[in-house]
């Protein structure tokens, strides 16, 4: 890498690349805008939260979800790139699953959207496969020694979604209200869903 590359501001670099590709007819502004809008507004963790809330309130759906995640998630209309084959991992009082991609940033786009910065951070990618209990504790999830911890490294095209535990005291909440409680980080398995 030359010093000149070092000095290149990424925003300028993006503008330069985009202008070169526009000139060659290889990108167009409308498609760029569509890609951006899709992942800013239509596809994100609110999708996964609907899956989780339905699983919490509909035992038959939960069963289908754990047996064939791809089909059960598609029932709610969620499918597409980075969600070809979905596996759902159930967290319980005795088993805690957590998901990472140590090699890049594989993430279940149709249900969670694009990954947040912490998921792509070198500290998370390197540490969670070596000291997951310490990682979870650092983010406020202190698991007792009796809780089994299972780490999943997403190294193929299978994508994982964690089904968090339903918090206590939410028996009277509607599916919609439950979905509002479900966080992105709980669906990756780094935290639990808190009661309202």
């Amino acid at each position: 890498m030359t010093d000149a590359d070092d000095a290149l501001d990424p925003a300028l670099r993006e503008e330069a690349l985009e202008s070169l590709l526009l000139e060659r007819g290889l990108v167009d502004t409308a498609t760029i805008e569509t890609f951006i809008r899709t992942y800013e507004t239509a596809v994100g963790p609110m999708n996964g939260a609907k899956v989780v809330a339905k699983a919490w309130t509909d035992p038959d759906y939960k069963q289908r979800l754990l047996v064939d995640g791809t089909a059960a998630i598609a029932e709610l209309g969620f499918k597409g790139p980075q969600g070809e084959h979905m596996v759902v991992l159930e967290n319980t009082p005795s088993v805690h699953n957590v998901v990472v991609c140590t090699l890049c940033s594989c993430y279940p786009w149709p249900v969670l959207g694009l990954p947040p910065s912490w998921y792509k951070d070198p500290a998370y990618r390197s540490r969670v496969v070596r000291e997951p209990r310490a990682v979870l504790r650092e983010w406020g999830t202190d698991l007792g020694p009796d809780v089994e911890v299972r780490v999943h490294d997403s190294s193929s095209e299978v994508r994982y979604l964690v089904l968090p535990e339903r918090p206590a005291g939410t028996e009277s909440l509607s599916e919609e209200d439950l979905a509002a409680l479900v966080t992105r980080d709980a669906m990756v398995g780094v935290t639990k869903v808190a009661a309202p």
Partner: peptide, 16 residues
């Protein structure tokens, strides 16, 4: 990066 201590360090804050 998996397990590589070169990249160990404090985790970033989770901003929901």
């Amino acid at each position: 990066m998996g397990g590589d201590t070169r990249f160990f360090g404090p985790l970033p804050r989770i901003d929901p």
